[in-house]
């Protein structure tokens, strides 16, 4: 397999951080979506997705992130991203993701702004 990926979750009382490692395509995206939906269904609607270890994100991965944004909006939740490369941030802004989710340089500021 060319793409080795991993997902780590750090849950706190009021929020959770999901950290992805690897190429965010359909395979990693589906796992990410599953984990996010588990958290949301369990009542955790303040989420941070840390993409620092995610080197590449394709448009299918982005579409899955949009689905997570929409799920959180239905429950009046919040999603912040952190650890994006300049190209990833530019792509997120181009695709309007930045209008509906926060973008922060690091996990600490992303959590603080939930």
């Amino acid at each position: 397999m060319l793409n080795k990926f991993d997902i780590q979750i750090r849950e706190a009382q009021e929020h959770a951080v999901i950290e992805t490692t690897g190429y965010l395509n359909d395979a990693l995206g589906e796992q990410l979506s599953e984990k996010a939906q588990e958290l949301i269904q369990g009542g955790c609607v303040q989420l941070v997705i840390n993409l620092e270890k995610t080197t590449l994100i394709n448009s299918i991965g982005i579409s899955i992130l949009i689905e997570i944004i929409e799920s959180l909006e239905e429950r009046e939740g919040t999603l912040n991203f952190c650890g994006l490369s300049p190209t990833q941030e530019r792509t997120f802004r181009m695709m309007a993701i930045a209008k509906y989710a926060g973008i922060f340089p690091d996990e600490e500021s992303a959590v603080a702004n939930l």
Binding site: S59, S63, I66, E67, M94, A96, I97, Y100
Partner: peptide, 14 residues
């Protein structure tokens, strides 16, 4: 929910 958040068909735009 948001028309500007198109999930698919954005590859060429990128």
């Amino acid at each position: 929910i948001h028309p500007d958040l198109r999930k698919r068909g954005r590859g060429l735009q990128i």
